[in-house]
Amino acid sequence: MSQQDKKVESKESKLVRRNFLKMLGIGTACAGALVGTGSLVAKAQGTESATAVPPPKIPDYDWNKHKWAFGVDATRCIGCLRCVEACKAENGVTQDAHHFRTWVERYVYLEGEERAHVDSQSDAQNIAASGSEKEFRFDNRYKDAKVEKAFFVPKLCNHCTHPACVQVCPTGATYQTKDGVVLIDHSYCIGCQYCVQACPYGVREFNHVMGVTDKCTWCYHRITKGLQPACVEVCPVEARVFGDRNDPQSPISAFLRNNRVSVLKPETGNAPNVFYVGIDKEVS
């Protein structure tokens, strides 16, 4: 092959490349326009029907008609921990002393002491008393002590009006429903645990088997069927109250009307929806 031939060939191939790039450019523009209009159309349709988006397909339930809230009367709690065990059974929470969706704390003020002694059911001595990490009870360590004041405080997710956990979630795996419940979509959770750190109340736990964050849902699968959350269902002394704030006859509406209530850590601005009666300011 001669030198000239080579030159001609390279010129031809350049032409081919140029053509190819041109085609590519045009093709990209077309595809872009197509997708762009497509998404615009989709968006337009979305905004059009934003008000008409039907609520999630839950039988006999419309989340626009409810506004759930929870009450805890610490003056009634007897620390029997039936709620803790019921929650684990109902929701399949890991059966050990390190994973809880709800728990109970014991505050004990001894005579002559300023600060409270605080323990919960996962405390080693209490686990020793129950004899198993699947059952829970408070031991009687203060029975011979000079106790000035003592009380139990059930804790659970506050389902805040302005939830910090939802704000920090990078994938939209945790969100707030229209009826005021903060849920976790396990299939979208990537296990980064930003939410665990963002929650000022420490209510989120990490499920090491599934690699996702977990927390109280107020038993969303129960309340949407007209049932009470499991912990409320088993509480033998009505220390836990649950209901719909839209219904003035509901237990929670009566609870909020008839009691002077407080929330935990109001200064964080999360605006919790679990309301407490009978707790000291030390409880947070």
Partner: peptide, 29 residues
Amino acid sequence: QFFTDRSYYAYGHYRGDSVAEIASDIPRF
């Protein structure tokens, strides 16, 4: 377009179908 769940953004920055999925669990008590 392909990877975003169809129900995503139905109600907000999350997968709308997950609400009904969570609600469909069977109560034990």
